[in-house]
């Protein structure tokens, strides 16, 4: 049983590491601001959830798990709100997203 939990949390932590590093790489590799928003949301959602879940499995049924679930819940709510606020502020100040070449005609913005 302990072995099973250990294996599961290894998988979760390794997955979390993978997704956060991928988010960082995407933040560096993507060419413009609007695509970087999506790279951040990878490490915000998948990386964060996997890390929290892996730590929960290691903590067991204790007060620590309650705190971890609280952290995960808050970040689950505030993460997309902050991303939306940044995107909306950029749009309001006149930063327009580039539209792919084959989609130009049906762009009404």
């Amino acid at each position: 049983m302990t072995l099973l939990i250990d294996i599961l949390s290894w998988v979760c932590i390794l997955g979390g590491v993978f997704f956060t590093v991928v988010g960082g790489i995407g933040l560096l590799r993507f060419p413009d601001f609007w695509s970087r928003l999506h790279a951040v949301s990878v490490s915000d959602s998948a990386g964060m959830l996997l890390f929290i879940f892996g730590m929960c499995l290691q903590a067991g049924f204790t007060l620590v798990t309650v705190k971890l679930i609280l952290i995960g819940f808050f970040m689950f709510i505030t993460g997309p709100t902050a991303t939306h606020a940044i995107a909306n502020a950029a749009l309001v100040t006149g930063l327009r997203p580039p539209v792919a070449d084959d989609l130009k005609e049906d762009d009404a913005a």
């Binding site: 999506h38 949301s41 939306h84």
Partner: peptide
Amino acid sequence: ANSITLTPGTITV
């Protein structure tokens, strides 16, 4: 709106 933003690849602007 939060669900749209939470799934990577789409963002509510």
